[in-house]
Design a protein around this nucleic acid. Structure first.
Lengths: 187, 187
DNA sequence: GTCTATATCTCGATAGAC
DNA sequence: GTCTATCGAGATATAGAC
């Protein structure tokens, strides 16, 4: 791993544990095994580092979700795959998943460019628009469905974190909870 | 409003806008119209102020929800009332609602005492236990239902914030969305 | 309780050698 | 690109008069 990656990895670890406030750049550099000045070679400011980290994590999640999509699948299958993949990624990347939420409730969110936001929501938006086209969904505002889907995923995620289930029990819970939300938004 | 309240109100406003990191105690004191030293008379440390603010807000929300409960109501009505009241409170207290989330994704969360946490979840837990007793709910783990309920409220809240609805449209959305979640968790 | 003044410290960021 | 050394700003918290 090169120095830049080391810095990002160290920053993620410390931000999740101590928050943005509680993590000085000096500690990040130390944890990453680089000099203080090196951090500021790669990132102009601390905020620059934070926003960069966020965008990379979101891109990584997005790429994973995109990878799981299959052109030939039915719409329900596509939605189930993106649903399942989101939870699986979250479970396999807990610090990253936590960081995303942490970032969303911070003033740094305002520093993400509109283009980056658009990139990160495109896949979901597209899928949902298609679903509405088919007429399989209840006649609800798209923003509401979108919001309900996202929060449902988050609710299941929180449950999975707390309860110590085996992998197969986890998979079963994910399957069942998809049916719950699918039943809720379809006619 | 006495000085302590002024400090808490100023802290809330600034934390929501600039985050914990971005809000020095000096600015809080200034915004509250008190001297720097006065802040530290009421709160030993900055963290003490943050955690205090959180507990007061949670207590205030809890009191409001409790107030809306009625012993004679049916279980579905009780749940609908607590659901509706949560959203109404959130809409009427946006900075407070945001602050709660912000706090939850910060290291300060670990500083809340178990007793305080228990107090803050008791009403919900009790209601859900009763609901399970009656057999009206699907046979799902209580923690899962609890988590789904909370996140559903949050999802609807996010939608209500984004969409500019009239008060009656808001009320209608809340009614409808309760039916959605109720249909999802009941047999 | 409230204020002013300030001590002490740490942080983010830079300069400049290598 | 990476390091060491350091500056200047601004942070939390305290001391002590009123």
């Amino acid at each position: 791993m090169d120095k830049e990656q080391e810095i990002l990895a160290a920053a993620l670890k410390l931000f999740v544990e101590f928050g943005f406030q509680g993590t000085p750049t000096s500690k990040i550099a130390k944890e990453a095994g680089v000099a203080n000045g090196t951090l500021f070679h790669y990132f102009k400011t601390k905020e620059d580092l934070i926003v960069n980290l966020y965008n990379r994590i979101k891109t990584s999640l997005n790429d994973y979700l995109f990878l799981k999509q299959n052109e030939g699948d039915s719409l329900q299958t596509k939605m189930k795959k993106i649903y399942t993949a989101s939870l699986e990624w979250g479970l396999a990347h807990r610090p990253e998943f936590y960081f995303i939420q942490q970032f969303h409730f911070s003033p740094h969110l305002a520093k993400v460019s509109p283009e980056d936001i658009e990139k990160q929501t495109k896949l979901h938006t597209r899928l949902l628009q298609d679903a509405i086209q088919t007429g399989v969904l209840k006649p609800l505002p798209m923003d509401l469905i979108s919001s309900l889907l996202a929060s449902h995923v988050y609710g299941v995620y929180q449950y999975l974190l707390k309860s110590n289930l085996t992998e197969s029990q986890q998979a079963e819970t994910i399957d069942n909870s998809f049916l719950l939300i699918w039943g809720m938004i379809t006619k």
